[in-house]
């Protein structure tokens, strides 16, 4: 049985750990609030752009814009959004597993796909596995601004346009609520599932032409989809880190309770033993 000193040491260290996890939980909770606000601020932009894209894409019947049409797939790109750090429960491993399973299923050789990685965990995983990581962003702030990922979004969309690959998928965690989120696969390009709502589609004048506008609009739309996924991912990252830290704190509290019990028992045993020894000693003198 462990000595009193050992148990005491274990209790102290567990207490310290639980203080840290508790603090991390509260930090994540406040970051989650901010992240939700950011996601809310982004909604008007997205819904507006969706509306206009829908209106134009349906207005131009033979709108055979390259970004709207599927072409035979020779190469696929995957954009994987993970966190930079661990300690967020299964956040990173869920995304990475979903992405790497899908890749393993669809492709037989490494030449058939390329990876864009947002977040250190995803990047390190795919680099270590020898996948072709052609772009990465790490060290994003907790409240990312659009300018932080503009570069990679533009590249990802640009390389689809110039034919480097024929499909772009995105993997990220979709924020459902503070206690749940789900790994989501989204096909960004080509844009085949445009939300078409016929109610509001006013017939627009296009200046100079519908094609010229699509030229500007579609890349912007695709880039904002990527940003939207990042915001969503950040929100669920904070939520998952919060619940992971909460369960860590709970576990630590349980552990401290058990250890205290063991400690008291050991202390009691030691006292009893001491008394027996004294009584025994006194009896021997008589």
């Amino acid at each position: 049985m462990a000595s009193l000193r050992d148990i005491k040491g274990k209790i102290t260290s567990t207490k310290k750990t639980s203080q840290i996890t508790k603090a991390m939980q509260m930090v994540s909770a406040s970051k989650l609030n901010r992240a939700e606000e950011n996601a809310k601020a982004y909604v008007p932009y997205m819904s507006k752009i969706q509306e206009v894209v829908g209106a134009i894409a349906t207005g131009t019947s033979d709108g055979a814009h390259p970004m709207l049409t599927s072409r035979p797939v020779k190469k696929t790109a995957y954009l994987v959004i993970t966190a930079d750090r661990g300690l967020a429960g299964a956040y990173n491993s869920n995304i990475i597993r979903a992405a790497s399973n899908a890749i393993a299923e669809r492709h037989s050789s490494k030449d058939e796909y390329v990876i864009f990685a947002i977040g250190r965990m995803g990047r390190d995983f795919f680099v270590k596995r020898g996948s072709n990581v052609i772009g990465d962003v790490i060290g994003l702030p907790d409240q990312p601004a659009f300018s932080d990922i503009k570069e990679i979004a533009r590249r990802a969309v640009g390389m689809f346009t110039d034919g480097t690959y024929d499909e772009l998928y995105m993997y990220y965690n979709h924020f459902v609520s503070a206690i749940s989120s789900e790994v989501t696969e989204k096909k960004v390009l080509p844009l085949t599932d445009l939300a078409v709502e016929t109610g509001t589609t006013a017939s627009y004048e296009f200046d100079p032409s519908a094609e010229a506008i699509l030229e500007v609009l579609l890349p912007q739309y695709a880039e904002s989809l990527i940003f939207g996924a990042l915001l969503d991912g950040k929100a669920s990252e904070h939520a998952m880190r919060m619940s992971a830290m909460k369960s860590a704190t709970d576990n630590a509290t349980d552990l401290i309770g058990n250890l205290t019990l063991v400690y008291n028992r050991a202390r009691q045993a030691a006292i009893t033993q001491e008394i027996t020894e004294i009584v025994g000693g006194a009896a021997a003198l008589d």
Binding site: V52, A55, I56, A202, S203, Y204, E205, F206, D207, P208, A212, I213, E215, V216, L217
Partner: peptide, 19 residues
């Protein structure tokens, strides 16, 4: 400033989209 020049927009303008 749009791609094809400056435009001024007053109330009642015809629905338009321009880069």
């Amino acid at each position: 400033k749009t791609a094809s020049g400056e435009i001024g927009i007053l109330p009642g303008h015809i629905p338009t989209v321009a880069p």
